[in-house]
Design a protein around this nucleic acid. Structure first.
Lengths: 155, 155
DNA sequence: CCATTTTTTCCCACTTTCCCCCACATTAAA
DNA sequence: TTTAATGTGGGGGAAAGTGGGAAAAAATGG
């Protein structure tokens, strides 16, 4: 439902706080609303996942629930599936929005993404993807040539 | 449904605002209408995509939704498909029409298209294509000779 | 269990950006 | 020529983003 779309760049302050763009916030603050005011929505939370590519993924609760449903299908007895479960939850964290719409990212998370003072937030419909600007540029640059090929194969 | 047809040229002001031609606007303002008045349609939005050729594409929501449906089919676990997702969403943005029928294009977008003060808007049925006038002329000039060949191959 | 240090988060203030709204220019229609 | 519709430009208020001080909470060490 969220439908996060767009790319923004924000600074991360000394305290490791990352601003969630207002237009993204609006997407999930309206959850509890029915024609009324856009709820202040206390206790708003996001799920933060370290991704393989060296970036972070932010899920709004209902979107994470969707993903979690897939994980719950994994067997508790099959070693491989147990390992996958462990790997995912070991990379997962939870972050609350403060009253200004920011989340505090741990040093670990920031380190994983190689983020220093600036971060790019990409809306990817169901989730937000957070990158160090330089690292993202490098990825996109290195793979520019593959775009047509991949797009042709999948879309 | 929209059926944007025609070519227009408009100026982009200091604030990076691009006028959407009235005749194009009318195409998608009629969406929610059934015999009634052409809805003022608050919150009208366009999807803006950086295209490979160095231009911008403007999709009307239902047209973009078509594409998005394909993107949602991509796996969240397959590295290649993840890469493709990132590449597309990194080039995508959303722009709302203001009350005068204009959209605000980010500096990034304008830079990508090499647009300064003038922009050509080409209606291409389901989307609009935005070019820097000079750049478009150059592309068409350089490839004039290939038209017959391409047309013969594909149409 | 208390005292001290560190971390968290609430709150306020400043700066910047966005966008509503109006005014005017220009073109098209009547 | 009048009237309306479209395109262009900008002032100013509101909202968003940024940073930091200080209270509250948590962690650490006796």
């Amino acid at each position: 439902m969220p439908g996060f779309i767009g790319r923004e760049q924000h600074t991360i302050d000394e305290k490791g706080r990352l601003m969630i763009p207002a237009r993204f916030r609006r997407k999930f603050l309206l959850q509890g609303e029915q024609g009324g005011a856009p709820t202040p929505a206390r206790e708003q939370v996001l799920y933060v996942l370290k991704a393989d590519e060296g970036c972070l993924e932010l899920y709004e609760p209902s979107a994470w629930g969707e993903k979690e449903r897939q994980l719950l299908k994994l067997s508790d007895f099959n070693p491989e599936e147990r390992l996958l479960t462990t790997m995912i939850y070991a990379r997962l964290d939870q972050a609350e929005l403060d009253r200004s719409g920011r989340i505090a990212l741990s040093r670990e998370m920031l380190e994983h993404a190689g983020i220093d003072r600036e971060a790019v937030i990409i809306g990817a419909n169901v989730k937000m993807i957070v990158w160090d600007p330089a690292r993202l540029d490098r990825l996109l640059g290195e793979n520019k040539g593959r775009f047509a090929q991949l797009a042709g194969r999948y879309v």
